[in-house]
């Protein structure tokens, strides 16, 4: 099946949910009050079967975000051309409203680690990542979004703050950003910094999507450590960051990510509806401020 359209639309500024196959029956039973679904691109790289049948079903009814987790854009090694070709085919087939990847690496020396690994932020790494984003955008023929990572360690070589690194990346490549607010909170806590301070220097103008998720608290006495588990409800602190962000930037496409200990569909949908309420509220406030500015 082909989904060619003249100009790919953008994701709507509404709540969406990361699709889990176990929810398909519940999702298919009714039209869901959601703006979009997001899937991990690599899970749809088989030739056929249930995954594609389900993705076709979703594509026909909802806006779609393809989220890559395996391109290893932050690697010093050349991008995997075969993988890039698979992504290109998937984008051509499903014409997603958005494609996003991570500021991270996951492959080295031919081994794939199945995790999003951190990189030092230097002039040198910035040049490599920018070249990789450029190559990806050229291969896919579209602007992509790059997501800020959750990190547990830093590198002594790093001499550029993450927000500056991402800002510079958008300017060099024209890419957009996926702002993961759980990652912002997790990283800030892990590195003893202010999440709001991070957001204040984040280029909100470039944000095309927001991610919300739950974390796991692995802290021990005197040693705070949060882990980006995607296995719980969105924490209150992260909700506050969300409210602050959409008040500043206006409503944005917002995804609930829940990948571990996945709840039943009604609970996941309820979590998305809470985000939807906040988006609606922000939209009204944003519109009022625009009106005042117009006067």
């Amino acid at each position: 099946m082909n989904y060619i359209s003249a100009s790919p639309a953008l994701l709507p500024a509404r709540a969406g949910v990361g699709f889990k196959p176990e929810h398909f029956g519940a999702i298919a039973a009714d039209q869901q009050p959601l703006g979009f679904f997001e899937v991990h691109a690599e899970n749809y790289m088989g030739a056929g079967g249930v995954p594609h049948a389900q993705l076709r079903f979703l594509r026909e009814r909802y806006a779609l975000s393809l989220h890559g987790v395996g391109l290893s854009i932050g690697s010093p090694e050349p991008l995997d051309r075969d993988h890039l070709a698979r992504l290109r085919r998937l984008c051509a087939l499903y014409q997603p409203e958005s494609f996003s990847e991570h500021l991270a690496w996951s492959s080295h020396g031919g081994v794939y680690f199945n995790d999003l690994l951190p990189l030092p932020y230097t002039e040198e790494t910035l040049a490599v990542v920018a070249a990789h984003v450029d190559e990806t955008q050229t291969a896919l023929g579209r602007r992509i979004l790059i997501e800020n990572p959750a990190t547990y360690v830093r590198f002594s070589q790093s001499d550029i703050p993450e927000t500056e690194f991402l800002t510079e990346l958008t300017q060099r490549t024209g890419c957009g950003l996926l702002l993961d607010l759980n990652n912002v909170f997790v990283s800030a806590r892990n590195h003893g910094e202010s999440a709001l301070g991070y957001l204040a220097s984040f280029p909100l103008i470039a944000v095309g999507e927001i991610h919300l998720a739950g974390f796991f608290d692995a802290s021990e006495a005197g040693a705070p450590l949060l882990i980006d588990s995607h296995g719980a409800q969105v924490a209150d602190e992260v909700i506050s960051l969300f409210e602050w962000t959409i008040e500043q930037a206006g409503p944005l496409p917002t995804l609930i990510e829940w990948d571990n200990d996945v709840p039943d569909w009604p609970l996941l949908l309820a979590e998305a509806m809470k985000a939807q309420d906040r988006l609606r509220h922000a939209e009204r406030g944003y519109a009022r401020r625009l009106d005042r500015r117009a006067l």
């Binding site: 010093p76 080295h108 490599v128």
Partner: peptide, 17 residues
């Protein structure tokens, strides 16, 4: 490709495995 980053990723990868 690049000196700092290759070293980082190589050492990181070896210790992960």
């Amino acid at each position: 490709m690049t000196s700092v980053m290759s070293g980082v990723a190589g050492d990181f990868a070896a210790a992960l495995r």
